[in-house]
Structures are given as structure tokens and as C-alpha cells.
């Protein structure tokens, strides 16, 4: 089987598992799956910024948070979720483009620090501006939406909403990376100087990469708010941004399936490692270190290596 066919098969398998997985699960299990779907959307966004366009960002949790707050504040004030969702995406698109400006001046580690700084600043604003965000008290009673009169309030129904969002967003990313934009992103990542000499605008595409990646986090966050029904600033710290980065790199940056696997590891692994009691984060951290030493291209890279070896053997 060629690589393309393998990729399609992998995506189809993931979708099939994702549709069937919640049947027979208790509410908590369904909640975890919903969380996985939303994390995967945000990770897809970061994957575009980082994996395809080569710009590191440690502010993904900030956009996830901005999206969540916009949706929470808008829907508790009576706005429809179906309006709040694109609004959150649009707001994050614009703020993401602004955050992209530093990337035009500085690269790599500097950019990591600027975005990291932005994430902490957003957290401080969420915590301190009580008049707007409710501060540490947060926003409660966030309603879950209905679609054509059909309530999506139940855990299972809401999970399928999250999954539908994930499928839509994945289709969008699939289209983008295969479009001329995707080619321009890849060219910029490989060699910005040469790309510019061929007429590719570094400014436009860098800002676009940030804006699209951030918008994805905003949309995921907008659905996160009704999922948990109560938000305060605590989930949106730097740790979550680091977790998103882990999802992308551990899953395999620059691949379409990588973020799914990465997000699954971050949300589900702690549950599977329950038997290790308090040790799971240590086991997890250790596994990440070993993976980075052995195969820096992440798990999909590891699968590729295994597949090629398997194909070569008679």
C-alpha cells in the first residue's frame, strides 16, 4: 500500500473508532472523548502554524481560552451558540494575525518566548478583569446548544457535535495544506529567502498561518465552554499551551493524523495509566523524552519507520 492510501485508511479508521467509541461508555468516558475532539481541533491549528508553516507558538491555550470566554459570555447573555462559534473563530483569527507580527521580526526560540509571554498575559487578564470575565469566580451555567430544535444537551449528542466540528475542521485543514497556500507555507518553512525571491510574501503567509491556527483554537474553545458548562481561567495556562505543543510534536508535526494521536495521548493516556496511580505524569514525561531521542518526528514518524521496515521484509 502506498503512503497516500495508508494515510486515508488511517483517517477512516480514526473516524470509525471515534463514531463507535462512545457507545457503551459512561458519561465520564464520553466527556473525555469530547475533550479529545476539541483538543484535536486546537492541535490541528497549531500543527498548521508549526508543522506546515514552521512557526512555533506557545499561545494556543490563550486562544482556546479566548474562544471559550467569548462563547461563554455571548451564550450566557442570550446569543445563539451557532453565532458565538464563528464569532470566537473570527476574533481569534484577528488576534492570531496580530500575534503573528512578532514572527516577522524574530524566529524560533524568540517567537516561543513572545507567544509564551502573550499566553501568560491573557491568563492574567482573564483572572484580573472581574467585570468582564468574572475573575476567579468564572462564568457558570453555560448553556448547551440545540440544532433545528434538537437538543444537544446530552453527553452523547454533544460529543457528536464535537466530532462533527472535528471532521469539518480536519476537512478544512486537509484542503488548505493541499491548496496553493499549503505549498506556500511549506516553501516558507523550508527556505524563506528563496520563497520570497519567487514572489511569496513572507508577511502575508506568516500572518495567515498564525491566524488560521489561532482561529482553530478559538473554535475549539468556543465548544469547550458548553462542554464543561462552567469556565474559570485555570485551564488556560501555559501548561495547556505546552500540552498542545506536545500533542503536535509527539503525534508528528506536519502530518494530518499526528494531532489526533497526540490529542488522544494527552487526554486518554492519563486514564489508561490510572493503575500507575500518581506516577502517570512521570511515565508520560519519560516516554516523551525517549520518543524525542529515538524519533524526533513523533509517533507518526515511528509508524512510518515501522511500516517501511515491514514492507521491506519478505
Amino acid at each position: 500500500m502506498n503512503a497516500q492510501g495508508f494515510k486515508r485508511l488511517a483517517l477512516a479508521a480514526i473516524l470509525a473508532v471515534a463514531i463507535l467509541a462512545p457507545l457503551g461508555l459512561k458519561n465520564y468516558g464520553v466527556y473525555l472523548l469530547s475533550l479529545w475532539a476539541l483538543y484535536a481541533i486546537a492541535a490541528q491549528g497549531l500543527n498548521l502554524t508549526l508543522g506546515y508553516a514552521g512557526q512555533i507558538s506557545l499561545a494556543q491555550a490563550a486562544f482556546f481560552g479566548i474562544g471559550a470566554y467569548i462563547s461563554a459570555l455571548a451564550t450566557t447573555a442570550g446569543m445563539s451558540f451557532w453565532l458565538a462559534l464563528p464569532l470566537a473563530g473570527l476574533a481569534c483569527f484577528i488576534i492570531g494575525a496580530l500575534i503573528g507580527f512578532p514572527a516577522l521580526r524574530v524566529q524560533h526560540h524568540y517567537l516561543a518566548f513572545v507567544t509564551l509571554g502573550f499566553n501568560v498575559l491573557v491568563f492574567l487578564v482573564l483572572r484580573n478583569e472581574e467585570w468582564l470575565t468574572g475573575g476567579t469566580y468564572g462564568v457558570a451555567n453555560i448553556p448547551r446548544p440545540a440544532l433545528f430544535g434538537l437538543s444537544l444537551g446530552g453527553p452523547l449528542a454533544f460529543y457528536y457535535l464535537c466530532l462533527a466540528l472535528l471532521v469539518l475542521m480536519t476537512a478544512m485543514f486537509w484542503h488548505i495544506v493541499r491548496s496553493p497556500w499549503g505549498r506556500a507555507f511549506a516553501a516558507l518553512r523550508d527556505n524563506p529567502e528563496r520563497a520570497a525571491s519567487l514572489g511569496i510574501s513572507i508577511v502575508t503567509y506568516t500572518l495567515l498561518a498564525f491566524a488560521i491556527g489561532s482561529a482553530a483554537a478559538g473554535i475549539a474553545g468556543a465548544a469547550f465552554a458548553p462542554l464543561v458548562e462552567y469556565i474559570d481561567p485555570t485551564p488556560f495556562t501555559l501548561s495547556l499551551s505546552l500540552a498542545f505543543l506536545l500533542m503536535v510534536v509527539v503525534g508528528g508535526q506536519g502530518t494530518l493524523t499526528g494531532p489526533f494521536i497526540g490529542a488522544a495521548l494527552v487526554t486518554l493516556l492519563p486514564e489508561w495509566l490510572r493503575w500507575t496511580e500518581g506516577y502517570y505524569l512521570m511515565v508520560y514525561a519519560l516516554a516523551v523524552m525517549v520518543l524525542m531521542v529515538v524519533c524526533p518526528s513523533g509517533l507518526t514518524g515511528l509508524f512510518d519507520m515501522a511500516r517501511r521496515r515491514w514492507e521491506r521484509s519478505p
Binding site: P180, A186, A187, D190, E193, R194, S197, L198, G199, I200
Partner: peptide
Amino acid sequence: GRTFQLLQVFGGLSVRDNLIVAAQEH
């Protein structure tokens, strides 16, 4: 148009995509 002293092709893209990306912005 220009070339550089050191080779500058986009190693990760296919030869076809290298050619397309060289013209697409126009």
C-alpha cells in the same frame, strides 16, 4: 527572477510542486 549562490530548492516538496510554487504567486 533570481537564483542563489548556494542551491535553494524546497527539499520537502516534489519537483512539480517546486515549479508550481515558483509561479503560483503571480
